[in-house]
Simulated assay, not measured.
Amino acid sequence: MFKEGVKIGIYGSSFDPITNVHLWTASTVAHRKKLDYVIFLPSIGEARRDKKLQTQDVHREEMVKMAIANNPKFILDTYEMNVLPQQQYTYYTMEYFREMFSKAKVFFIMGADLLVDIAEGKWRMAEELIENNQFIVMARNGINMLQTISRSPLLRNHDDGRFQLLDKGLDMEISSTYIREEFARGGEPQYLLPNACYQYIKENQLYREIIR
């Protein structure tokens, strides 16, 4: 599908809903790391135990589709929404994309909070994931990425350039959770997400209550 040497970032999130911060982050990462494409990958429902999806997959998919429609570098892929239960791990996701784009350079884009989770042993098949992939890690407030790597035997013994750290100007705190709460409590988060998505949420009456 892609020519040899093309650089692709896999950007997974719940996108519940997708926000302007997601789009700005993807654009900034692509610019700084010279990525040719960023694949937006809506995650499976139980990807993170501390997160519960509040909308059906069809709504999340449609909002991502609308949000990225005007950027040819942005691609939607629903692989994780349809994956079998026994393959619901990031390791298998990255195996899928590396096989699909065998001539490209594929990077997993993640926040520093996920790097901490891996270091603390919270991810299944973490060793296989780290051994076989390259990562772009975005700063998160209060997390020292270099320290996180140095304190983890798994991460520091694979610190051979596969972790590309972005630690300046990427720490923005407006989250999907914040936007959901604003909708649920009658707030007005219109300018925090693409206008098409805002209108879609209104028309479909999404996020009318807070789900914990």
Rank of each mutant, 00 (worst) to 15 (best):
A112P: 04
M81W: 07
V83Y: 03
L114A: 10
D113K: 09
E99K: 10
K105A: 12
Y91F: 10
G111V: 12
Y92K: 02
P85F: 02
K105Y: 04
F108N: 14
F97A: 02
I109E: 13
R98G: 02
T93N: 07
K73M: 12
F74K: 05
S102L: 05
L76N: 09
Y89W: 01
P72Y: 07
F101M: 08
E80H: 06
F97S: 05
I109L: 15
N70G: 13
R98Y: 00
M81H: 07
N82Q: 05
I75N: 07
A104W: 13
L114Y: 12
A104Y: 06
V106M: 05
E99F: 00
T93R: 09
M81R: 13
D113R: 06
E80M: 10
N82R: 08
M81Y: 05
K103F: 00
Q88E: 08
E99Q: 04
T78D: 08
S102R: 01
P85H: 04
K73F: 01
A112V: 09
T93V: 12
P72A: 11
E95S: 15
F74W: 11
F107N: 05
N82F: 01
V106H: 14
N70M: 10
E95N: 11
K105Q: 15
S102E: 12
V83H: 02
L76H: 12
F107Q: 07
M81Q: 13
A104L: 04
I75S: 03
T93D: 07
K103Q: 05
M94S: 07
P85R: 02
K73Y: 11
T78C: 13
Q88N: 08
Y96Q: 03
A104Q: 09
F101N: 04
Y92V: 10
V106W: 13
V83K: 03
T90G: 01
E80D: 13
K73S: 13
A112Q: 13
N70L: 14
E99L: 03
M110G: 10
N70W: 09
M100D: 00
Y96T: 04
F101Y: 14
K105M: 06
Q87K: 10
N70R: 14
F97L: 03
V83Q: 01
I109H: 08
K73R: 15
L114M: 15
A104R: 11
P72T: 07
T78N: 09
F101Q: 08
A104H: 11
S102G: 02
M94T: 03
I75A: 02
K73D: 07
V106P: 09
L84C: 01
M81A: 14
T78L: 13
N70A: 15
F97D: 00
G111E: 06
T93Q: 05
Q86H: 00
N71R: 15
E80K: 05
N82H: 08
Y91K: 11
D77Y: 06
T90A: 14
L114P: 03
G111Y: 07
P85A: 07
F97H: 09
Y91D: 07
G111Q: 10
P85W: 12
L115M: 12
I109A: 06
F101D: 07
D77H: 15
